[in-house]
Simulated assay, not measured.
Amino acid sequence: MSLFLGTHQNRLDVKGRVSVPASFRSALRQRQAKENHPLIFRPSHKMACIEGWPYEIFSELTNSLDTMDVFSEEHGDIATTLYAEAWPIEPDKEGRILLPDHLKEHANLTDTVTFMGLGTIFQIWEPSAALERCKSARQNLQKTPLSIPPIKTRREQP
Results as ranks from 00 to 15, higher is better:
Arg96Ser: 00
Leu99Glu: 07
Lys93Tyr: 03
Pro54Leu: 08
Pro43Val: 12
Glu74Met: 10
Tyr83Lys: 08
Glu105His: 03
Leu99His: 07
Arg96Asp: 01
Phe58Gln: 09
His106Ile: 13
Asp69Lys: 11
Gly52Trp: 01
Leu82Ile: 09
Lys93Trp: 00
Glu85Val: 11
Met47Thr: 14
Leu98Ile: 02
Glu90Leu: 06
Thr80Asp: 06
Gln32Arg: 07
Arg96Val: 04
Gln30Asn: 08
Gly52Cys: 05
Arg29Thr: 08
Asn108Ser: 12
Pro88Lys: 02
Ala79Gln: 10
Glu74Asp: 14
Thr62Phe: 00
His37Glu: 10
Asn63Ile: 08
Tyr55Gln: 01
Ala79Gly: 03
Val70Met: 11
Pro100Ile: 03
Ser72Ala: 04
Pro100Glu: 12
Thr67Gly: 04
His37Asp: 13
Leu99Trp: 05
Pro88Ala: 04
Pro100Val: 06
Ser59Tyr: 01
His106Gln: 15
Ala48Trp: 00
Leu28Glu: 00
Gly95Cys: 09
His102Lys: 15
Asn108Ile: 05
Tyr55Phe: 11
Leu61Pro: 05
Thr81Glu: 14
Val70Trp: 12
Ile78Leu: 11
Glu56Phe: 03
Glu51Ala: 06
His45Asn: 15
Thr67Ser: 11
Glu35Phe: 09
Gln32Gly: 01
Arg29Met: 10
Ala48Tyr: 00
Asn36Met: 07
Asp101Leu: 11
Lys46Val: 15
Leu103Ser: 05
Gln32Glu: 07
